[in-house]
Amino acid sequence: MLNALEVFTTVAVGVMVGVEFSVAFVINPILNGLPGDNGLRGRVHGARMLGAVMPFWYIGSLVLAAVWSVAGWDEGGAGLVVAGAGLLIVSVVMSILLLVPINNRVKTWTADGLPEDWKQQMGRWDRFHYVRVAVLIAAFTLLVAALV
C-alpha cells in the first residue's frame, strides 16, 4: 500500500510541476509574444481555468506527501519526503500570499477595463511563478530521491 502511495504522490506532484513549468516557460512566453493585448486574453482564461483547478492540486499533493511522510516514517528516505512536503507547504504559502491576489485581479480584467499597470502586474506574477516553479522542482526532486 505504501508503494502505491509513493508512486501516486510522485506522479501527482510531477505532473503538477510539468504544468507549472509549461506555464512559465512555454505558454506565457507564447502569449507574451502576441501583439497588443491578445496574449492577455489567454492569460485571463488561464487564470480562470487553472485558478479553479490548481488549489485542489496543490493541497492534494501536499496532503499526499504528508500522508507518505507519516506512513513511511520508519522507511528509508523519510527525511527527504518530509523536506519535499515542507517545500510543498512553501509553494502553497507563496501561492496564497503572492500569486493568488494577482490572479484574482487578472480573472476580472476585460479588454475594455485594463488597469494601467497590467503589464507590470503580469511581470510580477511571472517572477513569483518562476520562484514557485523552482520550489516545486526541488520538492519533486526530493520525493523522487526518496523512492530510490
Rank of each mutant, 00 (worst) to 15 (best):
V67K: 11
L87I: 01
G33V: 00
D117E: 11
Q120K: 13
D112Q: 07
A12M: 13
R124S: 10
Q120I: 07
V90M: 03
E75M: 13
L64F: 15
G77V: 07
V53K: 11
V100A: 13
N32R: 01
W125H: 06
L88Q: 07
A47P: 03
Q121G: 05
S91W: 06
N103L: 14
I27R: 04
M122N: 05
T10D: 06
W125Y: 14
G86N: 02
L114S: 07
G18R: 08
G60T: 04
K119Q: 12
G33R: 14
V70F: 14
W125R: 05
L80N: 12
G79M: 09
D117P: 05
L99G: 08
V106T: 13
G79L: 12
L97Y: 09
R48S: 15
A12C: 08
N28M: 03
M94C: 04
G123F: 00
A24T: 11
I30R: 08
H45A: 15
A111F: 06
G76Y: 05
A85P: 00
G84K: 05
G77N: 10
G86S: 02
A83C: 03
I30W: 04
V23C: 14
D37P: 01
I59E: 04
D117G: 11
G60K: 12
W68D: 09
P55R: 04
P101K: 02
A24L: 13
M54L: 11
R124N: 09
L31K: 01
G14T: 01
R41F: 13
G46A: 06
G14D: 04
W68Y: 13
E116T: 02
I89V: 15
A47T: 00
W109I: 12
A78I: 03
M16G: 07
A66K: 03
K107F: 07
A85G: 10
V13L: 10
A85T: 03
W125F: 15
L50S: 02
V81F: 13
R48P: 06
A47W: 03
G14M: 02
V93P: 03
L97K: 12
R105V: 01
A71G: 06
A12K: 05
V67I: 15
G123C: 07
T108M: 07
F25I: 00
V82Y: 03
L97N: 01
W125T: 07
A65Y: 10
T9Q: 08
M49T: 15
F21N: 08
M49P: 06
P101H: 06
L34V: 02
A65K: 09
L88M: 14
A65N: 01
P35H: 12
T9R: 08
A52W: 10
V19I: 12
Q120G: 09
G39C: 13
T10L: 11
Q120A: 15
I89C: 12
L99F: 03
G42V: 03
V70A: 14
G51Y: 01
N103F: 13
G42L: 01
V93M: 00
A111W: 11
R48A: 15
